[in-house]
Design a protein around this nucleic acid. Structure first.
Lengths: 231, 231
DNA sequence: ATGCATTTGTTCGTATGTATG
DNA sequence: GCATACATACGAACAAATGCA
């Protein structure tokens, strides 16, 4: 009355996986079949079991990889990227990819209550945790805020830059969430395969009086980030 | 200095799309290339532009389709499926796919504070708006609630069924959101191509005293639903 | 741009062991 | 013993995605 082969293999692999770093590549199905001296199907049966339990992930054409750590991002009224990352004992890094004026799209114009096409100050930033991309955000600001571009270049956080321009408090008004597959440029910047979906949030931030201050679109790779809403 | 051909084509198609019903199939690339008397690549450049703007969606091997209407789902402390759908002038329908006791998974056991494997009452429901699937939800309840199974079978809403069992108020404690591609059974039930991602929420609902009452996992096709959080 | 090698995903068919009645 | 149903295991072939030369 011994256990089936695929269960023994699953147990053996489970121990390997717990010792492996997140995101590491597993041996191929063929290699594992040789190692355990069984058919490829038997190995697959074991791997399916582990994938169902969330310990690994398969990518067709590339291989199998141990699960990456998923950082829960608490969507709060006061977003602070660095604090989020540090709360999980990782090192935050915010890279400014571009900063400049550009014509506003329809969604931004409506959110900021300006004319479509009217220029807005746009900041694109890539957020990394221990060097791994976890967020790609576009921030759109009305141009009326004096000195904001320079402040954004200096500060590591949007909140700090706005504070330097006299906006000492701003609040997330509402946040909508969609999911979609990444565009090629997003996949490249976030170092993602094109088959893994993004969580995309769109949020409007205002000052305490309700005047729109920022329209933000943030993309989070769903393999590395979950969104958590309290209440 | 005339506009590039792909821009003229994109503008012409934009007008067509605005007049087309949601989800309608577009002509094939070959047909459009003949119509505008350009190369297939030129049509693709225009279509890519429109897809990026969210006006249409491509499905490999099937064709291109105009964007479907996206229903914004407000994630509030008191979830009411029917009210949500009716607020958008559509007819709600909740189909019970299965209802019965089953062993609890690790996540459910932790949320409901019971032993893993201890049985829970599980309800799987498909939510439709005007006949189109918009939600697939698994509700897990502790077995201690007397008469709940019968109440769930009778009532159209989880809230009503709980009320009949003496739980007159329950609140969404916290909600986490991930995105992933649908499993085959999910794609079939939601009538989705396997390439369109789902928004998957996991929420814990408690009574006012904080006792866990329900652990819910809901899947929303991102092409038809967005999630909106206020605050 | 094109083809090739690699890897995972899917579907056949076949055979064997095990539990049940 | 026998028939049935089910899970397990192997083999072969092909499809689909990726990466590389």
């Amino acid at each position: 009355m011994t256990a089936p082969a695929w269960q023994r293999i699953a147990e053996a692999l489970r121990l390997d996986l717990l010792a492996a770093p997140p995101g590491a590549a597993l041996p191929t199905e063929a290699a594992l079949a040789r190692r355990f001296d069984v058919n490829r199907h038997t190995v697959r049966r074991a791997l399916d079991d582990l994938a169902r339990a969330g310990l690994l992930r398969a990518e067709q054409g590339r291989g199998r990889f141990t699960a990456e750590e998923v950082l829960p991002y608490a969507v709060t009224p006061r977003p602070r990227f660095s604090e989020w990352i540090r709360a999980h004992d990782k090192t935050p890094l915010g890279q400014i990819l571009s900063l400049g004026q550009a014509p506003s799209g329809p969604a931004t114009a409506q959110a900021l209550r300006i004319e479509p096409g009217e220029p807005v100050l746009t900041l694109r930033r890539l957020g990394l945790a221990d060097g791994i991309p976890v967020a790609l955000a576009d921030h759109h600001f009305p141009t009326r805020i004096a000195g904001l571009a320079a402040a954004l270049r200096d500060c590591t956080s949007v909140t700090d830059a706005l504070a330097r321009c006299g906006i000492t408090d701003y609040l997330r008004r509402s946040t909508s969430v969609i999911a979609r597959l990444p565009e090629p440029v997003e996949a490249r910047l976030l170092r993602l395969p094109p088959s893994l979906p993004l969580l995309v949030t769109e949020s409007l931030n205002t000052d305490p009086a309700g005047t729109p201050v920022e329209h933000g679109i943030a993309r989070y790779p769903s393999s590395r980030v979950s969104l958590v809403f309290d209440g």
